[in-house]
Design a protein around this nucleic acid. Structure first.
Ligand SMILES: [Mn+2]
Ligand SMILES: [Mn+2]
Ligand SMILES: [Zn+2]
Ligand SMILES: [Zn+2]
Lengths: 152, 152
DNA sequence: GTCGGTATTGCGACGCCTTGCAACAACAGC
DNA sequence: GCTGTTGTTGCAAGGCGTCGCAATACCGAC
């Protein structure tokens, strides 16, 4: 009788992907991946460290950040920076996107390829520059903050 | 005989601008402004702290960063963030511009309003969002790094 | 010129992230 | 199963900023 097959997840491939590159599958990496698999969306590095520490109190920040680097190289996550420069990680992004961030109220929105496509193509054609869309964060003022300011 | 009139500089207005807002003109602010007046272009916060310390060894980082905030509110400088999230200051920008940064070789270029204008207008019309152009840093790969990678 | 209110400074502590290094432990090979 | 190689970890230290707080000093008023 064959073992039951659980629901498959993209994360299941990580151990073999690592070993195929001569890297190793360690308990610390397993902890981070379990954390990442249990959430979605955007988190800061500090939040990820915190969640790993909840799962395993012996977690060390440097190990988490180094593993995040590895997972980004493998394409499982991407990072950008908030308005203050802090790292924000996007887990398993369906499609590349940047971020729009209101410096006044702190809200943020995803910036689709359709909105930035013109700029991306212009930079590619005009300068040969390849934009890393997921690293793009546009900071400014959102509609409600701008109108609140002009009509005090 | 009237006193000789030296070459006038935009920085000359700072003391009175501060006092008009109920703020104060201090030796520490004078030091930073002399540093800023002596250079141009883009510098990181740490570089500015370093230059202030060279001019006055008693310089404290927190005071420099707080004064940079004040000068940015007055419009004398603007800041963005490098690929690693560190602050970069632009002194007396002639015209608002963003930055293009190659994550591979570290080079960077100015991004003119003409190149980003389409995106800025689209975000304004579509979302009511007001982009802070000088805070924009687009990271990616420059032409020479991209071709070096595709033709190894 | 002195005085007082209050903006500013310097300090210490903290938060986020990176790096060098010695000790450890995956895992390939036998 | 061992064993050796070498990728990883944990630690300590450092760099970049930020913040709260008590002491300082700017500057407007008299
Ligand atoms: Mn910023
Ligand atoms: Mn980055
Ligand atoms: Zn807002
Ligand atoms: Zn390059």
């Amino acid at each position: 009788m064959p073992a039951a097959i659980g629901p498959s997840s993209p994360w299941d491939a990580v151990p073999d992907l690592l070993r195929a590159r001569g890297m190793r599958w360690t308990p610390q990496r397993r902890t981070l991946i379990e954390v990442l698999a249990g959430i979605g969306g955007h988190l800061t590095g500090a939040e990820l460290v915190e969640r790993c520490r909840a799962a395993d109190p012996t977690t060390t920040p440097s190990t988490v950040y180094r593993t995040l680097d590895v997972l980004e190289e493998l394409g499982f996550i991407r990072h950008g920076h908030g308005a203050d420069g802090r790292e924000e990680f996007h887990v398993l992004p369906r499609t590349a996107h940047g971020h729009l961030h209101c410096g006044t109220c702190g809200s943020s929105w995803e910036l689709g390829a359709s909105e930035v496509g013109g700029l991306v193509r212009a930079l590619r054609r005009g300068r040969g520059f390849h934009v890393d869309l997921s690293h793009v964060t546009i900071v400014g003022q959102c509609e409600s903050c701008a109108s609140a300011e002009s009509r005090p």
